[in-house]
Design a protein around this nucleic acid. Sequence first.
DNA 1: GTAGTCATGTAAGAGGTTACATGATTAG
DNA 2: CTAATCATGTAACCTCTTACATGACTAC
Lengths: 211, 211
Amino acid sequence: MSLRHETLALLTIEPMTGYELAKLLDDTLGLLWAAPHSQIYPELRKMEDSGFIEAERVPRGARAEKRVYTITKLGVEELQRWEQEPQSYPPERDVHRLKAAYFEFSSPEAARTHLNSHLTYWTRRADLWTELLEGIRTRTYPLLRRRLDRFPPETHDAIVAFKGLAFEGQLARAHAEIDWAKRSLAALEQLGDLAAVQAVTAEAAKGHASR
Amino acid sequence: MSLRHETLALLTIEPMTGYELAKLLDDTLGLLWAAPHSQIYPELRKMEDSGFIEAERVPRGARAEKRVYTITKLGVEELQRWEQEPQSYPPERDVHRLKAAYFEFSSPEAARTHLNSHLTYWTRRADLWTELLEGIRTRTYPLLRRRLDRFPPETHDAIVAFKGLAFEGQLARAHAEIDWAKRSLAALEQLGDLAAVQAVTAEAAKGHASR
DNA sequence: GTAGTCATGTAAGAGGTTACATGATTAG
DNA sequence: CTAATCATGTAACCTCTTACATGACTAC
């Protein structure tokens, strides 16, 4: 349940609408917690009920209105409380590694295709995070700029350092995945002709089945 | 929805009960997809209804019975189908990285504690996977042995290679996390006295709130 | 006018967590 | 006899996904 804390953290930058939060939590942006708007709007209402945030109705244009949410004192305290709370680890659930573990039920081409997609996906992520890190270090990334503008100068080094830490971690993970995909592709090559394996394993497995 | 395919894959080793599958899918075992028994038993019933597995009622002791599940031809085909199907990537959701990104709302001690737990957790995982990999390479890991005993010799190299690949990936990820935690702890040190930051950021955030 | 963006919702369903619940079997 | 293990379930609840739904505003 960290959607709550990610949105609280974003609202410490400045008041925002659900729509803007939804854009920031879009997975393609590369931030640390993604969520669709269908999850965000109800969560904002719940947080409002809990007193963590407050909505202000602001007119836009002639007829329309938007709800601009501001974090409250209670909301900041909740964020601090969560930050100090010990954090458990989610159970292991890695579908790509799982597929790789059972490539003997796949075809050599499909296995290669999977690893190439993996390479593409994580390379794109690495590029994204490299750029983001550059923007963090130079303090030019817009979201960071907006944050620094609101916080006193003596906190800037720490704020920048922590954002840097987090995305260095993401980047390191991406590089580990890229290396893994490359090594795995090489290993696939070395296994030579696997054409027969799929058929044989399938037959063997069916053998158990019809025992 | 890969619980289904992990259990199908395990049932290609040999027929098993829900209880045994639940033990294998325990997170502390370090396999690739964890699940509690409360999820496994209903899933087995669903797969039985779909014809992917078949249950045999086997007596145990005098009064009791157990349901031993066997994968069917249809089940093996489903596993193969899934293996060749393109796999999407889950949205980014990393709670530990998220916490690190907002350490300015934490205390220096809590931040250090988080990173030390991270180190402990991933070191334990790395040890687990190192041992598992050793058992895979020497072909002595019991689950792998059981698998190899059921599959024809010409498939053994590939089966062992794929299991190796998968856990090398897990190990690489663990090492990346360990490195990150160490580098982050060092970075924390270098930031020097952060005692004031938490208070200041909190005040600043409340400042927005009561604007 | 019309396409793109801004803006906010609801709802069904899948997947996962946590807790409750029960009882037989086996090893000491 | 008693503790650990084997064995199988249910139920409430939460989170997340996917799809449906609507309409105003702005730039061209």
